[in-house]
Design a protein around this nucleic acid. Structure first.
Lengths: 193, 193
DNA sequence: ACGCAAACTTGCGCGCGACGCAAGTTTGCG
DNA sequence: CGCAAACTTGCGTCGCGCGCAAGTTTGCGT
């Protein structure tokens, strides 16, 4: 369970992220001040900037943490598994949670979709993760990612599927679970090895 | 050739964009001040913000204009052409220029690749274009883009290929022309109709 | 149990940026 | 040639990002 220090840090981080999200949902992103976020999380404005360097980053934190999880999940896959299966699994895992910690997954997703600045923030993280994933894929295939475009292409396509599925799921009014949507999207664009 | 007014506006816009790019290449993005950009373009700092709302936007202007061209190019394709062929053509066209107006295509690309904030800006535009393209594709296929995920998926994958090709081309030290790289990438990820 | 070093929080201050506003200047149409 | 619309500019305001240094909390070693 890590030390008290770590736990408190995570708690503050989450409090700030939730505060930012709720304020944005309530009053519109453009009216959210860093000052208000800090106030709602019971820390000083200065402390906010020790955790996040923009409100966009704070709002997207949960989403981006999940994206970060993809790399970890991929590393955990058996190396003899077909590549696309590994990618699919790695992408599904972070979104396969008991709903509990993230009741507002929907609210957050929709908010992000509506605001270019939040989308850009998400993409920023996604690009970082893509780079890391690309290296992993290249390593598994014994390719040089700077030499051979294939690893980055595969990762790029898979990421596009993820992003598209997320968008589509958040927009569509039906309440189908997200996982099948994501899986279907990944199946549909599968790149041959 | 449009009126003098229009031409002057375009000229100012380009001057600002080039000034921003050159300053960034010379001194590093983080040391570029809006004030300096305006100075180099012979306008007031306030005027800069009449054209762009950030230095990132100014630097990426040329790149994003090109991306914008994709939608126009797609609309110009015959509607009975296979979808993926139309997409491929639409993406190739804006990058098929006589080199002339954009001798620093390379410098700009590499600068963008090195800076998350510039990538985010590019992605912001790309997402807008993807949305527009998705509507076009959906219209051609007689599908509702909110109902059917296929149009956004196809566009997402094609965009990923474009982005990946651009990145790969800008990183790789060889001086192969960009078009074949892009075409190869698009071929490799082609999504069946 | 205690104390000290490292980590974290906070207030202050600075420089930059985005933008509304209103006055001055340029453009182009009738 | 004159006038309305469009564009430029300076000013002022507000918010943000972050370096710095002082104060507070945590946890480890003895």
């Amino acid at each position: 369970m890590a030390g008290l220090r770590e736990r408190k840090k995570l708690e503050t981080r989450m409090a700030l992220s939730w505060a930012a999200l709720n304020l944005a949902v309530e009053g519109g992103l453009e009216n959210v001040l860093v000052e208000d976020i800090a106030a709602r999380a019971n820390v000083s404005p200065r402390t906010f900037n020790n955790y996040f360097s923009s409100k966009e980053e704070a709002i997207c934190a949960i989403s981006t943490d999940r994206i970060d999880g993809i790399v970890t999940a991929f590393r955990a896959r058996p190396t003899d598994e077909p590549l696309w299966d590994s990618l699919t699994a790695a992408m599904l895992i972070p979104y396969d949670v008991p709903i509990d910690p993230d009741r507002d997954f929907v609210a957050r997703s929709q908010l992000i979709l509506r605001h270019p600045s939040l989308q850009a923030e998400t993409m920023r993280v996604q690009l970082t993760v893509q780079a890391a994933l690309t290296d992993e894929v290249a390593a598994r295939l014994n390719l040089d990612p700077d030499q051979d475009i294939y690893p980055s292409l595969v990762v790029g396509v898979a990421s596009a599927a993820l992003h598209t599925a997320l968008r589509h799921w958040a927009i569509s009014p039906d309440t189908r679970p997200f996982l099948p949507t994501l899986r279907a999207a990944l199946d549909q664009v599968a790149v041959s090895e």
